[in-house]
Amino acid sequence: MARLRTAGARRRSMGEIAYVGIIGFLAALALLILVGPILVVLATSFTDSRSIRFPPTGFSLRWYELLLDEVRSRQIHRAVGNTLTVAAWAAGLATVLGTAAAVAMARAAGRAGRLADAFFMAPLVLPGLAFGLAALMYFSLLGFRPSLEMLVAGHLIVVAPFVLRTVGASLSQLDPSLLDASRSLGAGPVMTFRRVVLPLIAPGIAAGAFLAFMASVDNVPVSLFLSSARTDMLPIRMWGMMESTLDVRVAAVSGLLILTVFVLMLVMERFTGLTRRMRG
């Protein structure tokens, strides 16, 4: 993997050996740091002890059993339900509205197009925490009480950029001659969109919807301010479980999330080439 190209040179100087060694070492360290923590959490979740330590003292599924217990983990279950409901609505709305906007913006070249793009991408770089607080003040001062609808509205803004980016990338790869061909064969704009454009950008839309859904499930800054005891969200509940007494069920929730992400990623990779789309 760290076989770096040293084209042309047959005799390796000390400098080249140092280069391969240093770059290779740092790259390996980067990989270890990226993957290690995830494996540590996964292993920890199967511990049989009441304290969180690695390596675990013995294997058991007790924390998963406790987590799945409907009575003793009722609050967590409710938070999971809320999180999935909000994510489905936010990602669904973002996919429909975002795809429509991306299609329109793909044709808006020049300054206006770039400005619109920067505006719609802004939630990605603006501090989410400031936006979360802004949303809380806005909804409260308008007289709304905390609700899942409010969370959907806040999450919609945060996840829409993911749809815009993946659908926009798919559209930019679309061959314009296909559209000309469709038109010269007598197809109207709607027909061309449904029969030519949509099938070609479908994988991009699916990837965008998936990323939007995951971004909503993971969202902290908006949920931190908009959720309440009744509309508790999973990341916020997990934070609470970590802050007070370090509850080992956090490890079990984490383990389930990791396995779910892994499986979903394999599926999305198979059908949409997800990771290549994310690389861009």
């Binding site: 923590p37 995830i38 540590v40 959490v41 995951m214 993971d218 990791i258 992400v261 994310m278």
Partner: peptide
């Protein structure tokens, strides 16, 4: 993979 794994999970790790 880590990017799609919740920030809270990574913090816990």
């Amino acid at each position: 993979m880590p990017l799609l794994t919740s920030v809270v999970v990574r913090t816990f790790a």
